[in-house]
Write a protein that binds this DNA or RNA. Structure first.
Lengths: 214, 214
DNA sequence: TGCCATCGTGAACCTTAATTCATGAATAAA
DNA sequence: TTTATTCATGAATTAAGGTTCACGATGGCA
């Protein structure tokens, strides 16, 4: 009755190959390449085979999103739960997120901002929510510790998440020039600004990163 | 040669009726109702007639977006150019935007966050950019006047715009309970938080609006 | 009144991928 | 070595709307 281990392994591996192909296609040229036939061919399987592993296109991409997003959320979660003041954690989390996004530019752009089909877009919302949840946790800690102003943690977390995501859209856009120095500067800018929203005693001035990119 | 004025008026009126029908459909039940046949029937014209006035579905909705968005951008622009400190203008602009959005909940949700087809989504980006531009203008003024921290105005504007838009997504969502008191409280919260990002000397504490909704 | 240009009509046509499925191969059980 | 399952295949099918177009109606104009 039980399927042999080797065979099962094949299945898991093929599924992974399809997921990878899908992710890679998006990472290369965005959602316009998110077509079942194309992904199948990239994964070295027939079109129909994709449906042996995924219920539908939406299902496939929901899993791709989960795959990629969970890693990012985990990275942020780790920072959120790390040692140090809430203020420091917040800045670190945002900075790290921004820098990582800048590295995987095209994919990050697709995950965050690129226009795509409604079903995929809907799946994206979950990712954003999960990220906001992490921030919210941190905000609560900051408030409890008296580091942050006393404000609804969920609203604050949305604001923070919205701020740094939106600020990333421009730099991540495929038409923007890739420049890893500017990327870090922007990440720093974004982290600083986002953090100021909450700090009870903000630093007197931000590093004037604006001039770095000039 | 010249078409009679009456006849021309008819044309303008019909076009307006189609635009209105499209906007109303979206305002009622979102993008799923954004179908040419449906809009045509609502406007009291035949499906094909829509194509006498608009090049394509994308064109139609781009114009719908423009119609609605331009008003909102204009409102913000008026506040941006109004008397008063940059700080005050910023808070006013954000608060007003948020309150207006909360009034036209469903439509605002569709314009800001609801998953939709890529072509429409792309048009949305322009709206966001226009709004960010207004904020950027204000930010420059605030920096020049020494009210705001010295930071890249475009990055800052993106952050501010992203912050208040993202924070609106939850409250605007169709499944959220409509409550005009909570709406104002959230608007205030959002305005306060967004503003703190930039103020050189932030108010010691925000109004603890978080408790109003509790 | 008759003619022309323009507008309105809506059923038929397309397009574009997603999805299915009859078939065959490969593997596990007997 | 059969036999039964499961898996892979990819061409054919579907589905869902956007878009077209041949035709009729209407209004302006001489």
């Amino acid at each position: 009755m039980a399927i042999a281990a080797v065979r099962l392994n094949q299945l898991v591996e093929t599924k992974a190959r399809i997921l990878d192909a899908a992710r890679d296609a998006v990472a290369e040229s965005g959602w316009k390449d998110a077509q079942i036939a194309l992904i199948a061919s990239r994964a070295g399987v027939a079109t129909g085979s994709v449906y042996r592993y995924f219920d539908s296109k939406a299902d496939l991409y929901a899993q791709v999103l989960a795959l990629v997003s969970e890693r990012e959320v985990a990275v942020v979660a780790a920072i959120v739960e790390a040692e140090g003041s809430a203020s420091q954690c917040l800045v670190d989390a945002i900075y790290t997120f921004a820098v990582r996004a800048m590295r995987g530019r095209r994919l990050a752009y697709a995950l965050i901002a690129e226009p795509c089909e409604p079903e995929i877009d809907a799946a994206r919302l979950k990712y954003r929510a999960a990220l906001a949840d992490q921030i919210a946790t941190l905000v609560r800690r900051g408030i409890a510790d008296g580091e942050f102003v006393d404000i609804d943690a969920n609203v604050a977390a949305s604001c923070v998440a919205g701020a740094f995501m939106e600020a990333l859209v421009g730099p991540l856009a495929p038409e923007a020039a890739p420049d890893s120095d500017a990327a870090k500067a922007i990440a720093q800018s974004i982290a600083g600004l986002s953090a100021r929203m909450l700090f009870r005693h903000p630093p007197p001035e931000l590093t004037p990163v604006s001039r770095v990119s000039a």
